[in-house]
Amino acid sequence: MKDFARRMIGIDRRIIFLLIAAAVLLPLLRPFGLPIKISPEVRAVYDYIEALPERSVFLLSFDFDPSSKPELEPQAVALLRHAFRKNLRVIGMTHWLTGTGLADDIFSRVAAEMGRERGKDYVFLGWSPGAGSLVIAMGQDLYKAFPSDYQKTPTQGMPVLEGVKSLRDVNYMVSLAAGNPGIEMWYVFGKDKYRFEMAGGSTGVIAPGLYPFLRSGQINGLIGGLQGAAEYETLIKRKGTATAGMDAQSATHFVIIVLVFLCNVFYFVLRGEEGKSN
């Protein structure tokens, strides 16, 4: 028993990897579709957008790159669908150079699906260097920070930006972030200086670290990981890739829980045997 326990504790991690792969793949092939509960932090984002008057200005910052696509793309798609359905004017941008193409693709796809027009209903500004410095520049003059959008169209005079001079004219802002520059940077250099309301969306890995900002009101809502995206999809009543992925996430969590349980059983067996031999 002792030898078995020792062998199991030092199990080849590739076996664990295989179990995880199976836990991800099987539910994707045979989904079991359980209901999704809505957390107050996700509902807060939904409610805020829901309460915005038509043609309000909504800024969505895609602060991620393709590596976080599975978690953050469903959040972006759900938010854009909601914003376009509410007939908001949407400004998009990114602080992550390698995320520019992905962000533009998401924007164009959802806008086409919702029948929205570039330049009139939305604009994608693209990427510009500087992160915090860029946000400060946008807070002073949006047109100097981004003289043209991602399509090289001059931003000055664009119908979607009518009445928008700087970040002060933004009604709501959400940063979908996989790291830095992201939510904290937007709060420090953006909301704190230019006084707009903002929320965050993040990968599951960094979401728990953002709860203090949520509790203190520095962000008014938080969409955390795939679970948060699935909750938002449920709220807007349009199921997407996040809802589909939740079964796989459920199964993976359970495999990890079982592994942790087994590891502890073997650990106590070993400790018990060692205690006896002493």
Binding site: R13, I16, F17, I256, L259, N264
Partner: peptide, 14 residues
């Protein structure tokens, strides 16, 4: 996802 599982298996002991 794979690394989280292997790290949890190794480290989460009472």
């Amino acid at each position: 996802a794979f690394f989280i599982a292997s790290a949890a298996y190794r480290a989460f002991r009472a």
